[in-house]
Design a protein around this nucleic acid. Structure first.
Lengths: 209, 209, 209, 209
DNA sequence: AATGAATGAGTGTTCATTCAT
DNA sequence: AATGAATGAACACTCATTCAT
C-alpha cells in the first residue's frame, strides 16, 4: 500500500520486506514465550536471548513490554483466526469441524487467553486492551456465526444463544491444562468431550420447562 | 479441664493464642490475593499491607512464600470441598446440585486452580505439590463419585467416564473468566450452560456410532 | 568472695548457683557456636534452638549479641587459660609442653581468635573489646612467661623476644585450617612443626649478624 | 590492525571496551573489600558504593556474589603468584627471598585465605571452589618447589617435607593479624620471625631422635 | 540497525531487637 | 523466668527501561 516516496527506478527482484526480519523473529519468539509461560515470566532478556540478539534491540523494535505483548497477541490471534476460519469453512458437519478445532487447540500446551490477559492487564493501556480484545472478538465472531448457521440449518437447538455456545466451547478447551487427564489418550478425550457438548447443544427434546 | 491455681506445671511465658488471629488473617488475605491475581503477582509486601502488618510478620507465621501458598491452597481447598460436599449431599437431582455448585463457583472471580499452580510450581517442593494435589484430589473425587452414582441410577449415560465428566464440568466453570459474558445475567448463563452439559451427558440415544 | 548481703541463717545444703543453669547453658552453647562458625553466622535464633529455649530468653540473660559474644569469649578464654596453664606448669621440657598445647589446639577445628574478633568488632564497644583483649592478654602473658623462663634457663636463645615467640607460636597453630594438610597425620605434623619452631628458637649459633 | 572504512563486516552496535574499566574497578574494589572484611560482610551495595556505581551495575558485570568472589580471588591470586614468583626467582639465598615475600605479605593487612573461603564456601559451586583452589595451588606449588630446591642444594635439612614447610611458612604470615604486635617495627619482626623459621628448617644437627 | 552500559524500583528472605504477657 | 508477637533494616538478586555510541 505504502508507495516508497521516491518514484525512481524500482529495484529489481523481490522487494525488501516491510517488516524487518528481526522484528518478525522477535514477534514469533515472544508470542511463543508469552503463550507458553505467561506475560510476567517472560523477561525481555529471555526474548532477546532466544532471538540471538540484545535486550536493547528488542526495544529498538518495540517501545515497551506491553507494546510487544499487544503486537504478539494480535499476531497470534490473527493466525488462530485464519486457522479456525479455514476449518470452519470446510464442507463437513459442524460437529466434526468443532472436533478438529478442539483437537488442534488441545494439542499444544498454550496458556489460555484470559490467563495471559490477566497478567498483562496491569501494564496495558486502554487502547492496547481494546486492540487485543478486538482481535479476539473476530475469532469469537467466527465461532458465533458458525453456531448461528447451525441453528438456522436446524443442526442445533434454537433455544441456545450462539454467544454462550461459543464461550462454552472455548471454556471446554481449557481442559487441556488438567494434568490428571494426561493419562487419557488425547484423541479419545477430545472426541468424547465434543460429543457431550454437541449432544447437549443439539438436543431436540424439551428443555427449559 | 484447666485446673486453676494448682502448680501443675503451667507452661512458662506468654500463652499462645488459640489460633493466632493474625495468622488466620494472613491466611484469608493471602488466599484471596493468590486466587485473585495469581502466585507471582502476590508479593509478601502486598499481603502484609493488606493485613496491616509488616512483611517480617508474615514471615513470623509462614517461613516461605511457597509455604504460605501451600497453606492457603489447602485452606481454600478445604473450604471449597466442604461447600461442594454439602451441596452434593442434598437430596435433589444431580443436575440441580451441579447448577448450584456452578453458581457458587462462578459468583466469585477466582483464578482457576491449574493457572495458579503453574506459576507457583517453580517454588514448590515435591511434598508441597503433593499436599495441594491431595487436597484437590479430594474435591475431584467427590465430583467423580457423584457422577458414578448418577450413572448407576441411570441418570447419566453409562458411556461416559466419570473422570472425564468431572473435568469437563470443572472446565466449564472457567467460563466465569470470559469478560464478554459479563453482559449476560449470571443466573441464566449458569442454568443454560449446565443444561447443555447435562443433556449431553445424559443423552439416552445412540452415541459413538 | 561476694558475701550475701543478709547475714541471716545460711540456707542448709548446696547453695543455689549464682549463675542460673540456663545462662550457663547459653554461654556454653553460644561459645561453641561462635568458635565453630564465627560471629556473623551465629544467629541468636540458632543459639536458642540449640539450647531448647526461645530467642527472647537469650535476651533475658544477655542484653545484646555483642554482650553475649563478649561473655562467651571471656568464658572460653578462661577455660583455655586454665588448660594452657596446667600444661605449662608440668615439670617437663618446654618443647614438650608446647607440643602438647599445639596438639590440643589443633585437634579441634575452632576458628582462631583474630578471625572471630574481626567479625565481631563492628558490634563491640570499646569496653567490650578491652574486656576480651584482657582475657586474651592473660593467655598471651602465660606463654610469654614460659618463654622468658626458658631463656633464663638457657633453653632458648636470649636473642629472641618472648613476645614475638609467643605470637609466632600462636600463628603456627593456624595451620590446622590448611585443608591441604589434612592429608598428613596430625600427630606427625604437630611434632615436626614444633620441632622446627623449637630448633629455630633454640639455636645456639650466631644469629643476627 | 583495524581496517578503517572497508565494509568487512563491522560488528553492529556500540563497540565493547577492551576490558571495561568499570569491570576492573569493581574487581579491584571488591577484591580489596573481600580481603579486608571477609566474604559475608561485603555487601554488593557496599562494593557498588565504593565504585561510585549502582548495585545493579555490579550485577551487569558479575552475575553473582559468588561469581564476583571467585573472579576476585583468581585475580588476586594471580597477582600474588606473579609477585611471589618474581621474588622466588631472584638469585639470592632462599632465606632472603622468604624474608622479602613475608615482608610484602605482612605489609598489607589482608585476611588469610582459609578464613575467606570458610565464609564463601556456602555459596560457591564445586567448580568455583576448584577454580580458586587451583589458583591457590599454583602459589603453594611455587613455594614447595623453592623448598625442594633448597633441600637439594643442602640449604635446608632433608628431613623436612617441603609441603609442610610451605604451609608453616604461610601460617607464620598470619602473624600480621596479631594486633598486639603492631607495636613492634614491622621490618624487625619479619626478619626475626623468618630467622627463627629458617634456623629451625635448616638445622644440621640431629632432628627426630 | 543494533548494542554495551547503567539504573531504579521491587522481591523474597534473614536477623537483631523490643515488648506485653 | 520465659515467651509469643512484631518490627526495621539490611541483603542478594531480577527486570523493565534509558541512553550514548
Amino acid at each position: 500500500m505504502k508507495q516508497p516516496t521516491q518514484p525512481t527506478k524500482r529495484k529489481p527482484g523481490r522487494p525488501k520486506l516491510e517488516q524487518s526480519e528481526t522484528k518478525i523473529n522477535i514477534l514469533r519468539t515472544a508470542s511463543y514465550l508469552f503463550m507458553e509461560i505467561g506475560y510476567d515470566k517472560v523477561s525481555l532478556e529471555l526474548v532477546a536471548q532466544k532471538c540471538g540478539i540484545t535486550k536493547a534491540s528488542v526495544y529498538y523494535y518495540f517501545s515497551n513490554k506491553s507494546t510487544l505483548f499487544t503486537e504478539c497477541l494480535s499476531y497470534v490471534m490473527h493466525i488462530a483466526y485464519t486457522a479456525t476460519i479455514s476449518i470452519l469453512q470446510k464442507p463437513i458437519p459442524l460437529k466434526e469441524r468443532l472436533t478438529e478445532i478442539a483437537f488442534k487447540q488441545m494439542s499444544n500446551a498454550h496458556l489460555d487467553f484470559e490467563t495471559m490477559m490477566r497478567d498483562a492487564a496491569k501494564d496495558l493501556s486502554e487502547e492496547q486492551i481494546q486492540q487485543i480484545r478486538d482481535a479476539e472478538g473476530k475469532l469469537e465472531q467466527a465461532l458465533i456465526e458458525a453456531f448461528e448457521q447451525a441453528i438456522e440449518r436446524g443442526e442445533i437447538n434454537a433455544v441456545h444463544q450462539p454467544l454462550l455456545l461459543a464461550h462454552l466451547f472455548t471454556a471446554i478447551l481449557t481442559m487441556k491444562n488438567h494434568l490428571k487427564l494426561k493419562a487419557l489418550p488425547l484423541q479419545e478425550m477430545v472426541e468424547q468431550t465434543i460429543h457431550i457438548f454437541w449432544e447437549g447443544a443439539m438436543q431436540k427434546s424439551a428443555s427449559k420447562p
